[in-house]
């Protein structure tokens, strides 16, 4: 049985690592390690520019041109990096009112985003308004529980994609929030919303068994958790109701977490759930380290957050 041990990093700069009583792999010079870095944003809401110096809450924070510098530095350090967004790219500054999302998509493409899922506000200029901006996006749109077959978005959105980095298969699928009651029907038109838990169960099985993925990531716009309505589907509900998902990257609730959450799936294994607030104020960074199986010296995976 694989056991994941959760290690909390309590003091900045000191990584505590204890693994099942065996030696730590990095001590062994023969071990081949691969590192995959996942970078992520959510709910950027058209915040192209940094907040101004007079903003009472977020002065001088965020900004796409600064994020670009950071992303490039991380990519230079580890080329095996994926850059993902969990939706609500649109709406929140006059850039969207004036230009309809064109600049958001152009800049994300230039920053080499690999994939995004679709948030409720990405329908704010209607599904036609989203479709109209697709020529400016060179990244993939992933949504497994929105059925677009009777809309203009048909064939533009895939349920999942398997990225291959250094021979490792990284399966990423997308999940969107229920649109009825949140977005006007005339905006989302014939987009069908399918049950996220059922779809996630299918997706994780396909990615694990059929696609043989080494890593499975869900890009979710369901929201982190609803404290007044804890049974409502959310990232924490999704985490405990499914299996084989390693990381849930969330959005919608604009949740600033002090650190990524370690939740347990329906097999009792750990799932990392993360969300980085909103408005491009933060970039999430999750590093996954892989060791070759015959060098497996420790029982399980350590999680340092």
């Amino acid at each position: 049985m694989k056991r994941k041990t959760f290690i909390q990093q309590s003091t900045a700069g000191i990584a505590l690592v204890t693994l099942g009583g065996f030696g730590f792999q990095s001590c062994n010079a023969n071990v081949k390690t691969k590192k995959i870095t996942i970078l992520h944003t959510n709910d950027v809401h058209s915040h192209i520019d940094a907040f101004g110096p007079d903003d009472a809450r977020n002065a001088n924070q965020g900004g796409v041109a600064r994020r670009a510098t950071l992303v490039e530095a991380i990519r230079n350090e580890n080329p095996n990096t994926l850059l993902l967004d969990a939706g609500d790219i649109f709406q929140g500054t006059p850039y969207f009112n004036y230009y309809g999302g064109e600049l958001e998509f152009k800049l994300m493409s230039k920053m080499k985003y690999d994939a995004a899922t679709i948030g409720n506000h990405d329908f704010d200029n209607g599904i036609d308004g989203l479709y109209a901006q697709l020529p400016h996006a060179s990244f993939k749109f992933l949504s497994a529980n929105y059925d677009f077959k009777n809309t203009v978005m048909d064939t533009q959105v895939k349920p999942y994609h398997v990225f291959i980095k250094e021979g490792l298969k990284i399966g990423v699928f997308g999940l969107g929030i229920k649109l009825e009651g949140l977005v006007g029907k005339k905006m989302y038109k014939e987009t069908d919303y399918l049950d996220p838990i059922e779809i996630a169960t299918d997706m994780s099985r396909i990615l694990k068994e059929d696609e043989q993925c080494d890593l499975i990531i869900c890009l979710s716009h369901l929201g982190y958790h609803y404290s007044k309505n804890p049974d409502r589907v959310s990232d924490l509900v999704l985490a405990k109701s499914t299996k084989n998902i390693d990381l849930i990257i969330g959005g919608h609730t604009h949740t600033f977490l002090p650190k990524p959450t370690v939740a347990q799936n329906n097999e009792g294994k750990n799932v990392l759930v993360n969300q980085v607030g909103c408005y491009g104020i933060n970039l999430g960074k999750i590093d996954f380290y892989f060791d070759s199986e015959n060098n497996k010296t420790a029982d399980g995976t350590s999680i340092i957050v």
């Binding site: 999430g284 995976t301 350590s302 999680i303």
Partner: peptide, 15 residues
């Protein structure tokens, strides 16, 4: 390959 370690954090986009 086997997943051995995960490290997660967030980085502020500061000036």
């Amino acid at each position: 390959m086997v997943l051995s370690k995960i490290e997660g954090k967030q980085i502020g986009i500061k000036d």
